[in-house]
Design a protein around this nucleic acid. Structure first.
Lengths: 158, 158
DNA sequence: GTAGGTGTTAGAGTATACTCGAAGTCAAGG
DNA sequence: CCTTGACTTCGAGTATACTCTAACACCTAC
């Protein structure tokens, strides 16, 4: 069993390309990686944990610069536990708001899927305009209200 | 009450800057917008619906090029209802997988928040390594297993 | 000893989505 | 009449995150 992993081994295992790993290093994300006499990166077993953390932060939408800040705190060890906790707590809030945003978009896209199916049945994208008011599905009225608010500059929280 | 809206009125109401609206137009997203004799864009009341749709698709993570495709179908009216339905259905799947991904990240960030609080109490980021095996919280064991899988190249679905 | 395969670096190129500057048009108000 | 302000276009600049090329350094196998 080899003590160290080369960049291409790490790339193959993590799904992060060697190019990207070198880019992350250049950007100061991989300062914890050791080098051999020739200057080659030698990834240790324990290096996969910070690597995984980088991957999680990136997939959470954190920009590289902020991940670098985090990694700088990581390098300083026990003195920065609190600061790192704060960063995770903030990222948690960011994730929650991203999820809320996507769920709001999902609701509208769900409506659009339904509406387009109804329109397809009738062969007319504006079929509801030809119906008497009381036969118009409330979902349509509700959506039109959202669009009216959009036109009037009434933003849905956000 | 004015019949038409200028670009800056639309910008103020929708929160999309005039620069961005012109960029969208250049990219073929706003072909439905009329112009006056002087070449100025005249947004009609009804134009806010496609504008809202563009906003929703963008906030759903759809790239501009694909939104353009959608808008080209929109311009063709009733003949493209089915194709547009398909695009919404695909976007719905995309949203669901984005939400699943962020929820998976949230779980890990939640764990990190908890772990860093525990570590802060003890003033040691690796406190659990000094505990007897049976006193280590199962959440820690579980997380370490995820990192082990990451190192072994065992991807969590995705 | 030399070809192949790995690694290194610096720096250029790509893609996406804006964001802005410059120069010009046009209509209304002082 | 002329300035002001809102609009126009074209094209350049910015930011982010890669993605790749070029030139070179090693080590191993034939």
């Amino acid at each position: 069993m080899s003590e160290y992993y080369t960049i291409s081994e790490v790339a193959a295992r993590t799904g992060i390309s060697a190019y990207t790993l070198r880019y992350y290093d250049k950007e100061g994300l991989l300062s914890f990686v050791q080098r051999d006499e020739a200057g080659k990166r030698m990834f240790r077993r324990e290096d996969f944990e910070p690597l995984y953390t980088i991957s999680v932060l990136k997939r959470s939408g954190m920009p590289i610069k902020k991940i670098r800040e985090f990694m700088n705190l990581y390098l300083q060890g026990n003195d920065t536990i609190h600061e790192r906790y704060v960063m995770f707590a903030e990222q948690r809030e960011s994730l929650l708001s991203q999820i809320r945003e996507l769920e709001a978009m999902l609701k509208i896209v769900d409506y659009k899927c339904w509406y387009f199916q109804e329109a397809e049945k009738r062969g007319d994208i504006n079929y509801y305009q030809k119906l008497p008011k009381e036969e118009v599905d409330p979902r349509i009225t509700e959506f039109n209200q959202i669009v009216d608010d959009f036109r009037e500059g009434i933003m849905e929280s956000k």
